[in-house]
């Protein structure tokens, strides 16, 4: 019984560690700031959720009562990760940081910076 629980906890830990590592690799490998935003907001959030889940299982079994306060951190990070990404994207737009040459929608950068509606795309509505 103990062996199985240890195996489950170890699996979650490894999954979480791998995801956090991938998030950081993305931070270095991806070519421009806007794409770099994607890796930490997603991979790292899931990574930490996995590690906290492992901690929940471990302490629940160890103390005999359900230990759920780790979920508070998960919840907090789930709420704050998009806000952080959004704020960084906002400042990047404000500072006119260029997207990668081959990315689509370069014409949207200027209206986005001024928080205006896109001009030539009106027919979509």
């Amino acid at each position: 019984m103990d062996y199985i629980i240890e195996a489950i906890v170890a699996c979650f830990l490894l999954l979480g560690g791998v995801f956090m590592f991938i998030g950081s690799v993305g931070l270095v490998r991806l070519p421009d700031l806007y794409t770099r935003l994607h890796a930490p907001t997603k991979a790292t959030t899931l990574g930490i959720a996995c590690i906290l889940l492992a901690s929940t299982i471990m302490f629940s079994i160890k103390n005999g009562t359900l230990s759920v306060h780790e979920w508070l951190i998960t919840l907090f990070l789930l709420i704050t990760a998009p806000v952080t990404a959004n704020m960084i994207a906002k400042t990047a737009l404000h500072h006119e940081i260029k997207m990668l040459k081959r990315s689509k929608g370069h014409d949207l950068m200027e209206p986005a910076r001024h928080r205006a509606a896109p001009c030539q795309k009106k027919e979509q509505e």
């Binding site: 995801f19 991938i22 998030g23 690799v25 993305g26 490998r29 991806l30 070519p31 421009d32 806007y34 794409t35 994607h38 890796a39 997603k42 991979a43 997207m99 990668l100 081959r102 990315s103 689509k104 929608g105 370069h106 949207l108 950068m109 209206p111 986005a112 509606a117 896109p118 795309k121």
Partner: peptide, 18 residues
């Protein structure tokens, strides 16, 4: 995202949409 991060970067086509 993990798959895209680990695959070659020149295949990626990022962009902005409204």
């Amino acid at each position: 995202v993990a798959r895209k991060v680990l695959s070659p970067m020149n295949k990626l086509s990022p962009g902005m949409v409204a």
